[in-house]
Amino acid sequence: MSFQRRTITAILCLWSGLFAFLWVGTAEASAYNPAQGDHFPTILSSAQLSALAEQKIEEKLAGIGETRRHELRLQRVASTMHLPAGEVTAVVEFPRGLPYGREFPAVFAIYIDGVMHRKATSYYQLTVYDRVLVAMTDIRAEEAISPANARVEERAVDTLPELTLTDFARVDGRVAGRYIRKDVTITPSLLAMPLVIRAGNPVELVLDANGIVIRAEGVALEPGRIDYTIRVRNVSSGKILRGKVIDAHTVQVIG
């Protein structure tokens, strides 16, 4: 029993995410059923699709300046395809982007002589590592982050380099915005600017009315952080207003 054998040459267009497979004649290649080969003579393997997706992922990471150590795992692979004769082009897209630490799809669009033929999907997981701040103890809300309660060690991260807390200087005066448990990676979402006003504190109310600054005595009705909006009461009129916290003593009335 004889088998028909063919081969293809892969051309990787790095700038566009295209992977073209052009017929170059008869040579060594994968064997397949002759009857099937008569109608679907081109083989596009899972390995070729994976090579395209992985190359494109590395390009995208480089494009956003991601140079940290990372691991890319193929979770589920697109099946090898038997395709009609013609020039085969594969285009890969990532509809959910490249999220760190979560499974995401790589969707392949397969064209024959420029006409869409079919789609296929592989799934990957990308893990990125960095040296980050990690809680050494349980940290209460409003507690400052310091070497007394945190350390730096390598961990898997889900933030871009500019948002990753790699040292204490990056905390930038913020405190724990809520309770942080021991051994948890400290991320910007867990932090907040410190409370500078408590409910009941006297404050100065400032209102800019068309360039005329009006000042009045007020009382904070709720706690606030700088740039947060809180409710206050005008002492003279008793009116309840909303204002942005400027500092520990000043609230700029809104409206």
Rank of each mutant, 00 (worst) to 15 (best):
L61C: 06
G63W: 09
G63K: 06
G63T: 02
I64T: 08
R68N: 06
R69F: 15
H70C: 10
L72K: 00
R73G: 11
R73S: 14
R73H: 10
L74Q: 04
L74Y: 00
R76W: 04
V77I: 14
V77M: 06
V77Y: 00
A78N: 04
T80I: 07
T80Y: 01
T80A: 10
T80W: 00
H82D: 12
L83N: 07
L83A: 11
L83D: 08
L83W: 11
P84E: 03
P84S: 06
G86M: 04
G86C: 07
G86L: 10
E87N: 11
V88K: 08
T89W: 07
T89D: 11
A90S: 13
A90W: 02
A90P: 07
V91W: 04
V91G: 07
V91A: 10
V92E: 01
E93W: 00
F94H: 11
F94R: 10
F94S: 12
P95N: 03
P95H: 06
R96W: 07
L98M: 09
L98I: 06
P99N: 10
G101A: 03
G101I: 08
G101L: 00
R102K: 15
R102E: 11
E103P: 06
F104N: 00
P105T: 09
A106M: 07
V107K: 01
V107Y: 06
F108R: 01
F108Y: 12
A109T: 13
I110T: 06
I110M: 00
Y111T: 10
Y111K: 09
Y111G: 07
Y111F: 15
Y111W: 11
D113M: 11
D113G: 03
G114R: 13
V115R: 06
M116V: 12
M116F: 14
H117T: 02
H117N: 06
H117G: 06
H117P: 01
R118L: 15
R118T: 15
R118G: 13
A120F: 04
A120T: 04
A120M: 01
T121A: 12
T121V: 14
S122G: 15
Y123M: 06
Y124R: 00
Y124H: 12
Y124S: 01
Q125T: 03
L126K: 13
T127V: 09
Y129L: 08
D130S: 05
D130Q: 04
R131M: 02
R131Y: 11
V132G: 00
V132H: 02
V134W: 08
A135K: 15
A135G: 03
M136C: 02
M136A: 13
D138L: 03
E143H: 14
E143K: 14
A144L: 10
A144M: 08
A144F: 10
